[in-house]
Nucleic acid binder design. Structure first.
Length: 190
DNA sequence: CGTCTTTGACCAGCGC
DNA sequence: GCGCTGGTCAAAGACG
């Protein structure tokens, strides 16, 4: 956002969380095209396909073209085909995982058949219309379901700096387009 | 002062 | 057509 510093110094970073003993990435689901509203699409939990299939599998959804009046789509009615969605199911005590982007909460809703409310976030970067939904698993509240919709049209404000500190070569990869900042880090897959 | 969260109201799609 | 439900808006307040 404003220079090379962690915008959320008090929060646990997503990259760091995967190393925490209480954090466990349970499922990674890649949802393409029409998405019928539950998480039964493509489950690639703990599979080798995960890293291979997700690293560059995010089709840019023309986010800049989408306006609020056009994204009132419901339950998979994403006719435009721009609604690339990715859902993570993670075991974590924290509901909000810092994935390097800044999110602004714009809604909270209790959903049917679930005792836990669903939180709605938008990317707070100007012009970026990526959204995410966060809710606790109704069957096991120790799991958090995080659904991303759309692809960022900008790089993570903090991930580059973080990678610079932790994984220097990645910065070069980002600069050359050889690494997709929207894709989950490869270590999510194992 | 700017940004963010909270929260109730509103809107639109879907099933009956 | 109606009611239910999920998703979004927007005003108000909190916070740094």
């Amino acid at each position: 956002m404003n220079g090379p510093q962690d915008p959320n110094p008090n929060n646990t970073r997503f990259e760091e969380m995967v190393d925490l003993p209480e954090f466990q990435l349970s499922d990674y689901l890649l949802l393409e095209g029409d998405f019928e509203g539950d998480f039964s699409a493509k489950t690639m939990a703990n599979s080798e396909e995960n890293s291979a299939g997700s690293s560059n599998g995010f089709a840019p959804p023309e986010a800049s073209e989408r306006r609020n009046s056009n994204i009132r789509c419901k339950r998979g009615k994403n006719k435009s085909g721009t609604g690339m969605r990715v859902a993570f199911r993670t075991k974590s005590e924290l509901e909000v995982m810092d994935d390097g982007f800044k999110w602004r909460k714009y809604g909270k809703k209790s959903v049917k058949n679930s005792p836990n409310p669903r939180n709605y976030y938008k990317c707070s970067s100007r012009g970026c219309l990526v959204k995410k939904r966060v809710e606790r698993d109704r069957d096991d509240s120790s799991y958090v379901m995080t659904t991303y919709e759309g692809v960022h049209n900008h790089e993570s404000p903090s991930l580059v700096y973080y990678n610079y500190k932790q994984m220097g070569p990645v910065v070069d990869a980002v600069a050359s387009g050889g690494w997709d900042p929207q894709a989950p880090p490869s270590h999510y897959s194992s």
